[in-house]
Write a protein that binds this DNA or RNA. Structure first.
Lengths: 237, 237, 237, 237
DNA sequence: TATGAATGAGTCTTCATTCAT
DNA sequence: AATGAATGAAGACTCATTCAT
């Protein structure tokens, strides 16, 4: 959140740059091991100037968390509400999640590694966000069961398997070399065959994805404009 | 490994206690955020006495890594060489891995979070260990394909899915409440149905596990005595 | 040398003050026995502020060495090249050396006592500087032999005697009470009578020094402005 | 001085070994930079055992000082009282001093570098010892003046020159390669020519030294048995 | 005689943060 | 909007010394 009262036009831009640089450094060296001095060098700002933009190191961390988790769960709930069958929605959700991992890898690394470095309040907020995401997946799973295409397994267990499969990806994914769409196809093929009944038609899923995308006229599913560095939405700080 | 030349009998015991306590603290607060002073308080040792056992904070971290990765890949290679079909071996491997995650959760959390805080050399050694584990899984997958029970998918992809599914578990598993054996059964059910051909018989797998265990007379598959705190084997530092 | 990129005008001044204070303390208590805390107290700076100026205790030591050895060998080479006979040049060199010992006594004490506390690289650089000084003296001795005023003794031996005689002075000299010019006259009287042939005229030397100084219009022989605390030239670190 | 009450036969021997080793380490790394731990390693004794022999690090330093200064001034006073002319006595004193520097180089280095690390009382005692040595030289100089072979120069000045010339030798002397006797001949040749009147006969001095030694039947001039490591005399602690 | 374990004040150094300008 | 200087608590680690055995 902007700190001082009035701001010139460049403020938010500069601010984003700082947060982005911080995400990169925190992701590479760890939050605790990254000094404000390093941040200054990386941004080209002097100590005093940096603090004009950030408030504190911890707020910076909160900002990084917020600016990736916020949009992601918004996208998840949007996709969860799409008027197509549950399996297709899960598949679209999977791809969106992997796209975020691919295009915001530094942010994701920070989110996965440094939640516990957040001040308790922000940390709780972030955990609540995650839970909302998990709920979307759990609900979709239940729908698929009701639709007869998934077996009647423990839905929490399956949700956890879904996230296991996806979330750990950040540990080895190389942006530009690994492709979110292909990964999503592969993961969902495995998971849905695993969860599925005889009624599930894995060979048809990818075609249905393509057809859906061709018909779809709404806003970006992920809600993120991956050509710009990082969106301006921030949550929970 | 023993530090100075001569040492009384209690040395190694005390040393293990220190490492174990450190694993717990590092896992809870993060390596960088855990002070030597905290460690002293937690172990009841004064600063000087602590350093009598550890060498340095970084060596301590290396020790934590080594004392969980070493035994685990040894177990993986032992299981990989068992005279049973590949799918069963994968299933046994899965359970062993989850047992370690359950019983050495603090160590695993440290391993997953703080590799990059390791001095370059130890870090490389640890990465090599992990790669050996990955190779075992990749080989088993290829065998299963050759046996006709797994489809001919990209073996590296499948190996990564296997580890995605298992490794992320440390993020949410609650020791004592979640059970390694049940999780392994669930994960393998999903993964092997996902990977499998029509020849794969998922309903029979768990029975075969039980029969194998009944017949098996060799040493503990995991190689870890989970009643004692932590084994004395350390590798690569 | 300036440490970080940008610095206000007062920086170098303050920095010199710190180095000068350090020279005094190191000279009195020894390098190892002088704590950073003492330095802080003596400079009136807090620990953090001190480090804003010095880099490290060892760099401070290197700076002390450099800021006295650099100018001194520059002076030596300048004097070595003066267009007067070798004996007179040796006499002028002697006085310059003693002037430095008198006016930079703390620095000299540090140089004589703490070279081995320097990081290897700086230490080597300083030893090279010293060797250059020694070479000047050795060359002048050889010239005096060629001029027929010094006996043909081992030039290295004589150079060592020259430095024995001068360098040990720092152990007992009391600035203000002992006088560099008088000491130089006395040392050179002894040494040159000792080294000299019948052609050497000791009684005339001091007159010739006076005449030379009267005629000489060049820059300060020592290159040091002894009214200001310490020059800003530093070498080799 | 021996610490505990009763001692076995090996005690003093061991003790000397420890002091000697300490002299070597202190000389190489400096007193402050040498740890008790290093001493333990070098002596093969454990911490507790070491303290059985030394009392404290500072007492060890005092012992090192005492065990070289004591014998040396005893020798100086013995030589000063020899029934030969003053110049010859100075020459013998010079050689003795250089022999000590050569054979007790580590001790001398410690004495020259670390006096100020001594507790005030011991330090004062050592300085008094040095002064007694200086007095011997000053007296001999005055005798030589009275004998008409030295010019009537400031005797303190000449004494300081004598010690300048000799004492700095420890900075560069390489035991085994540089020879005390030859150095003494060279130093005294220079100094005595420098101090001398026309009555001084420099060419005859070395022959007179040889003759003296041939006739001399008393105890070792230096009082030190340079084949044994270090004498057992300790002074002032 | 000798040991290994323990102590805790002390070491140098770093760091996030502030503030006058 | 920006800077350089200052802070002081906290960081990891070392060290001379002691003591029960």
């Amino acid at each position: 959140m902007p700190r001082p009262a009035g701001h010139g036009p460049g403020y938010e831009t500069r601010r984003r740059e700082v947060i982005d640089t911080a995400a990169e450094l925190f992701s590479r060296n760890g939050f605790a091991a990254t000094g404000i001095a390093e941040l200054c060098q990386a941004t080209g700002l002097a100590k005093g100037a940096l603090y004009y933009y950030i408030g504190s190191k911890q707020e910076l961390l909160a900002e990084i968390h917020g600016s990736v988790l916020g949009p992601v769960i918004a996208a998840a709930e949007r996709i969860g509400a799409l008027p197509v069958d549950a399996v297709l929605r899960l598949r679209l959700l999977s791809e969106t999640l992997l796209e975020v991992i691919e295009h915001r890898l530094e942010y994701i690394r920070v989110v996965e590694h440094e939640i516990d470095r957040l001040p308790g309040q922000s940390r709780d907020a972030m955990i609540r966000e995650r839970r909302r995401f998990e709920d979307v997946v759990t609900r979709l799973h239940l729908e698929a069961v009701r639709e007869g295409v998934f077996r009647d397994l423990d839905p929490r267990q399956c949700m956890l398997q879904f996230f296991n499969m996806h979330n750990y990806t950040f540990q080895w994914l190389r942006p530009g070399r690994d492709d979110a769409a292909a990964l999503s196809a592969a993961y969902c093929d495995t998971l849905f065959r695993g969860f599925g009944t005889a009624a599930h038609r894995p060979e048809e899923l990818e075609d249905r994805v393509i057809r859906f995308r061709a018909d779809y006229a709404g806003p970006s599913l992920s809600g993120l404009a991956f050509t710009e560095p990082v969106p301006d939405v921030s949550v929970g700080s």
